[in-house]
Computed example of a mutant assay.
Amino acid sequence: MIDVLIVGIGEYVTGLSGEGVAKSDKSFGVIALSLFDMRERGLVGEIHLAGRDAKRFDLIWEHFDKNLKSAYPFLDTSFHAYPEEGYSDEAYKEALNQMQEGSCVMIFTPDDTHFQIAKDALEAGMHVLVAKPLVKTTTEHLELQRLAKEKGLLLMLEVHKRFDPIYADAVDQIRTFGDFSLMHSYMSQPKTQLDTFASWAGISSDISYYLNAHHIDLLCWAVQDFAKPVSVVATASTGVADKKLEREVEDTITLTVQWENLQSGALGTSVHTASWIAPPSDVHSQQRFFYMGHTGEVNIDQAHRGYGISTDRVGYKSANPLFMKYTPRNGKFAGQQGYGYQSIETFVRSSDELSKEPTKLAAYNKTLPTIENTLNVTKILEAGRKSLDEGKVIFL
Rank of each mutant, 00 (worst) to 15 (best):
residue 276 W to G: 03
residue 269 T to C: 02
residue 291 Y to W: 12
residue 243 K to H: 08
residue 260 E to G: 07
residue 296 G to W: 11
residue 254 T to Y: 05
residue 275 S to R: 03
residue 240 V to N: 07
residue 235 T to L: 02
residue 270 S to A: 12
residue 269 T to D: 00
residue 277 I to K: 03
residue 282 D to R: 04
residue 236 A to S: 15
residue 275 S to Y: 02
residue 235 T to Y: 08
residue 241 A to R: 01
residue 294 H to D: 12
residue 257 V to N: 02
residue 288 R to L: 15
residue 283 V to N: 08
residue 292 M to N: 08
residue 228 K to S: 12
residue 269 T to N: 00
residue 283 V to K: 10
residue 235 T to V: 11
residue 297 E to P: 01
residue 239 G to A: 12
residue 276 W to Y: 03
residue 251 D to C: 10
residue 235 T to F: 04
residue 234 A to E: 08
residue 287 Q to A: 15
residue 286 Q to N: 08
residue 268 G to M: 00
residue 283 V to F: 06
residue 267 L to V: 09
residue 234 A to S: 14
residue 278 A to P: 00
residue 245 L to M: 10
residue 282 D to M: 10
residue 234 A to M: 14
residue 266 A to E: 13
residue 248 E to S: 11
residue 252 T to Y: 04
residue 244 K to L: 12
residue 247 R to D: 03
residue 294 H to Y: 13
residue 290 F to T: 08
residue 282 D to C: 02
residue 230 V to K: 14
residue 268 G to F: 05
residue 268 G to I: 05
residue 250 E to Y: 15
residue 244 K to H: 10
residue 253 I to Q: 02
residue 246 E to Y: 11
residue 255 L to C: 10
residue 293 G to Q: 03
residue 263 Q to W: 13
residue 256 T to A: 10
residue 250 E to P: 06
residue 231 S to C: 08
residue 255 L to I: 09
residue 258 Q to D: 11
residue 267 L to P: 02
residue 273 T to H: 07
residue 285 S to T: 05
residue 241 A to Y: 00
residue 283 V to Q: 05
residue 229 P to I: 01
residue 264 S to H: 14
residue 278 A to N: 07
residue 266 A to P: 01
residue 232 V to K: 03
residue 271 V to Q: 11
residue 241 A to P: 00
residue 264 S to C: 05
residue 275 S to M: 01
residue 294 H to F: 11
residue 285 S to M: 08
residue 261 N to M: 05
residue 249 V to P: 01
residue 270 S to G: 15
residue 258 Q to N: 13
residue 283 V to P: 00
residue 232 V to P: 04
residue 281 S to D: 05
residue 260 E to K: 15
residue 249 V to A: 00
residue 244 K to F: 09
residue 257 V to W: 01
residue 261 N to L: 08
